[in-house]
Amino acid sequence: MGDVVQPINPENVKGNPHEYFRRKYVWSWPIRIFHWVNAAAIISLFFTGLYISQPQLAPAGEAYNNFVMANVRMIHFASAFIFVINFFWRMYWFWMGSKYARSGFPFFWKKSWWQDLFRQVMDYIKLEKGHIHMGHNALGGLAYTFGVIGLGWLQILTGMAMYSESNPKGIIASLTGWVIPLSGGSFQVHMWHHLFAWGFIVFSIIHIYIVIYDGQVYKNGLVTSMVSGVKFYQEGDIDRDDWLK
């Protein structure tokens, strides 16, 4: 289905053959679900995380009536598990999805990928329209690799290591317990987890901006594409995802 190309507006085609807009189904539903679950989980994790780090506004009354911290932590952990499952689901889809599902990967062993990366950087700096991609451009892909996959792993490992501390003999501890001595103790794990949390914010700011900017410049419907799955392109644009096979 990914490669199906179909006209979007037959009228347009007739009247303006040179502006022959086409649409292409790029983001299959698993990717879109992943995307929004991921975004929601991260927002939840970040704000609950901040509260955990610096709890504010103590509730009045007896402790046994209140569970503010307990609930916030519960939401954090629930979001964390959703985040993790979603994350692994996306990993799986990496292989199972279309070639666009793989497009975020840095294909650093391919020359064409490096070329695209360079081109894309120059385009953003020169504030110019460059080449059309159906999947991620190389720069975007790199950003997802570092900003989401890399940070995701760090955050999952540090988070799970802390989570496992209440049951050091459990399965999670045997999987992620090594993170604690490696970081120099639980205290340092907290510190890193907290620092990485901000990494997601930095990523999100840049990410959302680029999505809007890219959508504006290329008129590719990028903003809505994560909802509908469909991206637009004009007749004559070249599909530059040439490192993808």
Binding site: L195, W198, V202
Partner: peptide
């Protein structure tokens, strides 16, 4: 602290 660094990075972004 991570908090300070995070805020600075977010503002910079």
């Amino acid at each position: 602290t991570p908090e300070e660094i995070g805020k600075i990075a977010a503002v910079a972004a």
